[in-house]
Design a protein around this nucleic acid. Structure first.
Lengths: 141, 141
DNA sequence: ACGACAATGCAAAAGATTATCATTTGTTTG
DNA sequence: CAAACAAATGATAATCTTTTGCATTGTCGT
């Protein structure tokens, strides 16, 4: 994912956009970041980017298909790099841990349901909430 | 759903709470209301209830299990009376129409996924987004 | 390098929700 | 049934997230 990519989607190659891409790409396990998260990460790296720009760029990246925006419980949107493969999420309500999964059966059923109700499905979101193994251990203690 | 119900869940029987219950019960097709929606409906009925109270009461009702809160796309929370039977939603992104469904296969798969990842499932939310039949017709025209 | 136009930063604004606090209203008790 | 207490309300301010306006700066094609 280099700067050529930005041009391809009609965005100028600017420093803020490059920095934000770097943050998102290097996020590793913490792939699910809010705008605020990205902003803080930028500051920690010594990159001085305005919060408004972070919001603007994340929205543009979403529209360009580079990112996916999720609405987890708790108000703010979180973003993650879109690596081509769609997936859903299961979240721990205690520690915030997020795991990803794909279930072909569920995908199928969803399409069937949309058909049955006469909808053309454009999108869907499935979040499973629960308590992960680690947090259950802690609770007992 | 009478006032005795409120007492049972530890809430005093007050005018605002009764009025809000009435609005929710009589909502009919428009069962999915935001706090603002409820507030406006109250004003239209000539009931003078503060917006803060609406938010407070809706939250209390949610905790009491009378209501379910949903996080549809678009920022604000929407509430609906909980009639015992769990269901998921399919929404039209053009006109805002909402339909409800239950799919036992999906429910099952979700539990299986939670197990597989070591989670104790507490909740889940599934929203299918699409364009309904009516809106497709309008678009062609 | 120049000029057009997009992108940025800052601060103000907007939208949804929550907190504060003085006042009012249910509920409980004598 | 009225006093007494606690809970609930309403108005407003505060908070939090996100968006917008606008002057300034940076990109990119020529």
């Amino acid at each position: 994912m280099d700067s050529q990519f930005l041009k391809k989607v009609g965005l100028k190659v600017t420093l803020p956009r490059i920095k934000i891409l770097e943050i998102l790409e290097s996020a590793g396990t913490a792939r699910h970041m809010s705008a605020e998260d990205v902003y803080k990460a930028l500051l920690e790296h010594g990159d001085d980017v305005g919060l408004a720009t972070v919001y603007r760029v994340l929205t543009q990246f979403e529209q360009a298909g580079i990112l996916t925006r999720h609405h987890f419980e708790g108000g703010q949107s979180v973003f993650e790099m879109d690596e081509g493969k769609h997936h859903d999420h299961i979240l721990c309500t205690k520690c915030g841990r997020v795991d990803e999964f794909v279930d072909p059966t569920i995908e199928e059923r969803q399409k069937a349901i949309a058909d049955k109700f006469g909808y053309t499905m454009t999108d869907h979101s499935l979040y499973i909430y629960g308590v992960c193994k680690e947090c259950r251990k802690k609770e007992k203690a």
